[in-house]
Design a protein around this nucleic acid. Sequence first.
DNA 1: CAACTATTTTAGAAAATAATTGAATAGGTT
DNA 2: AACCTATTCAATTATTTTCTAAAATAGTTG
Lengths: 229, 229
Amino acid sequence: MQTDTERNFKDKLYEQFARIGKSLSNPHRLEILELLAEGERCVEDIAEITGTTIANTSQHLGVLRASRMVEIRRIGNNINYRLADENVFYLLQSLRALGETRLAEIDRITRDYLEDRASLRAVTASELADELVNGNVILLDVRTVEEFQEEHIQGALSMPMETIENNLYNLPKSREIVAYCRGPYCVLSDHVVAYLNTQGYSARRLSDGYPEWKWRGFPVEIGGKRLDA
Amino acid sequence: MQTDTERNFKDKLYEQFARIGKSLSNPHRLEILELLAEGERCVEDIAEITGTTIANTSQHLGVLRASRMVEIRRIGNNINYRLADENVFYLLQSLRALGETRLAEIDRITRDYLEDRASLRAVTASELADELVNGNVILLDVRTVEEFQEEHIQGALSMPMETIENNLYNLPKSREIVAYCRGPYCVLSDHVVAYLNTQGYSARRLSDGYPEWKWRGFPVEIGGKRLDA
DNA sequence: CAACTATTTTAGAAAATAATTGAATAGGTT
DNA sequence: AACCTATTCAATTATTTTCTAAAATAGTTG
């Protein structure tokens, strides 16, 4: 029923696809990929953020590079890693979608940590894009100033979480507010939205955070430069 | 900057996602998943088609079951395995898309094997769905009769590859023909389409085969029963 | 060019995974 | 109930992966 050439073809083919699968088989590498979905980072930063040693991080990055999922760029003394293209992000999203629907453990873990997210209203990237055009929404980037300067959604205001309280006078209650942060597992915008709601604002969170916005091709500013879809 | 709870959360979270990643890290398991995307199969069949032993196949299926990517159903003496839901298929598609765009090796391997595919016209699942409604297209299922009986696209004619020649008189040249087979790496429809074109027909192949059609929710018949989108 | 810095490589130990074989089991079938 | 059959389990061996610490490297900066 099956020819040798066909078997040989499939063996070689799936061996190649498994290179990508192997890259996805380690928790650290998944965390690195998710981190890089936010923007490029140097090895040292990746190591610190993910709580591993530099040597170990370097090895994981090597694996990711061998499977062509990430690319590098030298900046001064640093080597910055970034996702190779939008297909990598889409793959991560599919993985996340599957995990969230099929693995009860993930549901339990996120529920424990993202306690009150269920009570907060969310807006998807494309919904927000529409609302921004109409112009009746204030968009808050609640990550750190450094992250904002690195890159952010076009038209967003930098408002790191801890600065909110002192800046309420800048926020008119007449307008809708949307807050965003790093990604789907970041709680910064949850806190801000919950707080603003207690203060009488109508606030929502961007559902999947900055990476989703960026990789779907919605307009961003990177290093001060505007990049449109 | 990072709290213990946050690190602990991320460690537990990515450990779970890595369960799925690990499932994707072995070539045999990828081939099994792709096979199951066509429809459910018992262990013995999976082993034979993928060219491995039953015990080995059983172990790989065990891994896939532990990560909730496949489910089982007992039929008589057999245990049939199937994809757990459409998210598994979408993940496979993302993996395929990434591999095909980023890994030069995959391009080379598929080009060698699918020699003349580039010269054949293809039609996507949603395009075909539209054309079928308009009714001016003949749809040929060129897989085996057994596979057709198991499940097929609603409205398709069973026309196993080796029966084409003797059935040309049944195919009016006035109508467009579309042929489909197992999946993106199956060559059956390539051969049929190429042959029909030499015989003066206007024939195209369904771009990603039966699995794409099925999991995107287009109408199929499974075991003689119609299932609409 | 020398010194420095960020990153990669190497080597080695521990842990995890994969394939093989043969025995065990759970279900249906007779 | 005894029997069959398809599948799983268990034990073993070979291979691969992960991590650490130390050494090496490449590229930038002074």
